[in-house]
Amino acid sequence: MENISIRIQILSIAVAIIFMLIIFRLIAKGKLREEYSIVWILCTAVLLLFSIWRNGLDVMADLLGIVYAPSLIFLAALFAIVIFLVHLSVVNSKQHKQIKDLAQEMALLKEKLESKKDGSTSAP
């Protein structure tokens, strides 16, 4: 039993570290903006914490009065996902407005440019 437990612990630590490295790489390459990366770095930190602290889950579940400890994982994961999705919707809405403003500015400028061009060619 002890052996299996250690194996899975090593595996989960490895996965957490690899995940963190991927996030750092993405930031370094400029493919992930820092404002979004904070969430992911926190996620990996939590992942890493619980892979090292083996009794952590049981202790936390006990503290919160949860009988079946693994259900705490699902609860926490669901919360995190929902919060992050709302955050993405907010970002999306902001970008929607920015794109609309840009499209309008561009269309108005193009109209100005074209009417100026027409005016100069038709003038005597």
Binding site: I99, K100, A103, Q104, A107, L108, K110, E111
Partner: peptide
Amino acid sequence: ATHINLPVNLGIGGAVQTGYKY
């Protein structure tokens, strides 16, 4: 005719607002 061409489809609200801005 005087016309403004939007580069992407904004829907009726965005189109009307473009005209109002003009």
